[in-house]
């Protein structure tokens, strides 16, 4: 276990972190996902050492970096922090930014070239941050952190200021970069799609608590709360069990449950149907997509858990 959080608590005016337990394995990439105000940024700051938790403990590689008696300064924690707006030092050029945290003289000579190669920005040594595009700045800021060879990377909303069109591209690049480095990484994000795309595991934080910490698949298909389920897109429930659109098929004549269509909206590629499903004499509201032409009829049959990807 490279990182282990136990029973972390923190309050400002009200609790922002409640009994947080979290463990991260070497080389794992996880996301802390939550809406704004859920406490996710505070959690990241606590891990980095910028904020002090009120109680609990924090270990890196089995070494305690925070508990009742100890609170290691951020500069001693070997944690690399990548900020939302990259926080490149505007008064330093790319080379000096990259070398900022590198203290070994020998390493300073060779590392810039290696890093620039890795982030594919050869020849950028003398450029200043304001001369770089957003994506380039981000790569430099990650390379700057990697230069100090930290145990863990923390990334605070790294894609939030990226143009939507470029987002997937940059996500892919960044992920490849981190995988290449073999580093453990923790992302903070409010975007579930992003979390699913990049993470080995996702910790969902709501009202200062971790609701669920699991693989993207499990979180998606077996969410532990309604709000978590609907956070990831359309979720339908029967007796507290969540069904995703992909787990539902509609039939014209045969199927498990009879349904009646209450409303249908044409969305171009598909129809969005609002239906109610009757199970054991109880009615449940459902939302489904249907690509076929038989939408004009008012009654169908529905099957669950049929389609798999």
């Amino acid at each position: 276990m490279i990182l282990e959080l136990k029973q972390l608590n923190k309050r400002f005016d009200k609790p922002v972190l409640k009994e947080i337990d979290l463990d991260v394995k070497q080389g794992e990439i996880i996301s802390i996902l939550g809406k704004s105000g859920s406490g996710k940024s505070t959690l990241l700051n606590v891990i980095a050492g910028f904020e002090k938790a009120d109680s609990g403990s924090l270990q890196i590689n089995g070494q305690i970096i925070f508990d009742k008696k100890k609170n290691m300064a951020p500069q001693e924690r070997k944690i690399g922090f990548v900020f939302q707006n990259y926080a490149l030092f505007p008064h330093l050029n790319v080379e000096k930014n990259l070398l900022f945290g590198v203290k070994e003289r020998k390493k300073r000579k060779t590392i810039v070239k290696e890093l620039l190669e890795m982030i594919e920005l050869e020849g950028y040594e003398k450029k200043y941050p304001h001369e770089l595009s957003g994506g380039e700045q981000q790569r430099v800021s990650i390379a700057r952190v990697l230069a100090t060879d930290p145990d863990i990377l923390l990334l605070d909303e790294p894609f939030s200021s990226v143009d939507t069109l470029l987002k997937q591209e940059i996500e892919k690049e960044l992920l490849a970069l981190i995988k290449k480095s073999g580093k453990t990484a923790i992302f903070v994000t409010h975007d579930p799609k992003e979390a699913m795309a990049i993470s080995d595991r996702i910790a969902f934080l709501e009202n200062a608590e971790i609701i669920q910490y699991d693989t993207p698949q499990n979180i998606y298909y077996h969410p532990k709360s309604h709000s978590l389920a609907s956070f990831f897109g359309v979720a339908n429930f029967i007796e507290e069990k969540c069904y995703r659109l992909s787990q539902i098929t509609l039939h014209k004549e045969s199927g498990m449950y009879p349904v009646s269509v209450e409303q249908s909206i044409f969305r171009g590629e598909y129809y969005e149907l609002y239906i109610s499903v009757e199970v054991d004499g109880k009615e449940y509201p459902f939302t489904v997509f249907d690509y076929d032409a038989f939408h004009k009829e008012k009654t169908f049959f529905l099957s669950l858990g049929q389609k798999k990807f």
Partner: peptide
Amino acid sequence: SINLNKTSRSLGYNYFKTMLKVELPL
């Protein structure tokens, strides 16, 4: 941005050195 300060600290400098290396030149 205060993040510049935090960045410097997570890159291994204490408050004082950060002051000299980041805020002072800026």
